[in-house]
Computed example of a mutant assay.
Amino acid sequence: MQMIQTVVVKQILTEKSKQSLLNTYQAKKLQLQKECDQLQFEQKRLETTKNFSPGTLKRQFEKEIQMRKEKIKLVEFQIEQLHILPLGSELTEKEVQVLVEIKVGDIWDERIGQPAIIIKDGIIEEIR
């Protein structure tokens, strides 16, 4: 019988993966900043049309801008943490679903334990 199980994928931090993560975080931060600027521009443009209630319009745009600013703070925190982490650290990257073959006589706790796939520079290093 087969069943679906969640497996954690972890990445070993190397110079190459650290730089890649840093580039990803910086690109995400830049994208969020662009979205904030675009929202502010759009808000000003819509305010001049007078088709919307100014108070409601401003609150809605401020809410959207604030959400993105919170995400920017989170990305900045992730960048700070990345600089602190020593090389060789294991970072949880994501979780994936896998099919696991089980049969009568298997030890349940061994089959259902939290398995992990360890990746180093894009290559599977270990399966636990």
Rank of each mutant, 00 (worst) to 15 (best):
Q2P: 07
M3I: 15
I4Y: 14
Q5I: 08
T6D: 08
V8Q: 13
V8W: 12
V9L: 08
V9H: 10
V9F: 12
K10G: 14
Q11T: 09
Q11D: 15
Q11L: 10
Q11I: 04
I12V: 12
L13I: 01
T14K: 02
T14S: 10
E15R: 14
E15C: 10
S17Q: 11
K18N: 06
K18P: 03
Q19H: 10
Q19Y: 02
L21K: 05
L22Y: 01
N23V: 06
T24L: 06
T24K: 11
Q26M: 10
A27S: 08
K29C: 01
K29H: 00
L30A: 12
L32H: 04
Q33G: 03
E35P: 00
E35Q: 10
C36I: 13
C36H: 05
Q38V: 09
F41C: 09
F41L: 11
E42Y: 13
E42K: 08
Q43A: 12
K44L: 09
E47T: 07
E47K: 10
E47D: 13
T49N: 11
T49C: 07
T49S: 10
K50I: 09
N51K: 14
N51G: 07
G55T: 15
T56D: 15
T56F: 15
L57H: 04
R59L: 11
R59D: 14
Q60C: 03
K63Q: 11
K63I: 02
I65P: 02
I65W: 15
K69S: 01
E70S: 10
K71C: 02
I72G: 06
K73D: 02
K73M: 12
L74S: 13
L74I: 14
V75L: 08
V75G: 03
E76N: 06
F77T: 15
F77V: 15
Q78M: 08
Q78A: 03
I79Y: 00
I79A: 01
E80K: 11
Q81R: 12
H83W: 12
H83S: 07
H83D: 06
H83G: 03
I84C: 01
I84L: 05
I84V: 09
L85T: 00
P86R: 00
L87G: 01
G88E: 06
G88N: 04
S89W: 00
S89H: 02
E90W: 00
E90S: 04
L91H: 00
T92D: 15
E93W: 11
K94H: 13
K94T: 04
E95A: 08
E95Q: 14
V96Y: 10
V96G: 02
Q97Y: 13
Q97P: 04
Q97L: 12
L99T: 05
V100I: 11
V100Q: 13
V100H: 10
E101S: 03
I102D: 05
K103F: 13
K103I: 12
V104W: 15
G105I: 01
D106S: 01
D106N: 07
D106E: 03
I107R: 07
I107M: 04
I107T: 05
W108P: 00
W108C: 00
E110I: 04
E110L: 11
R111Y: 13
R111P: 02
I112L: 12
G113Q: 13
G113P: 06
Q114R: 09
Q114L: 10
Q114G: 09
P115C: 07
A116G: 06
A116T: 03
I117C: 02
I119T: 05
K120N: 05
D121C: 02
D121T: 05
G122S: 03
I123H: 05
I123Q: 07
E126T: 09
E126V: 09
I127N: 02
I127M: 07
R128A: 10
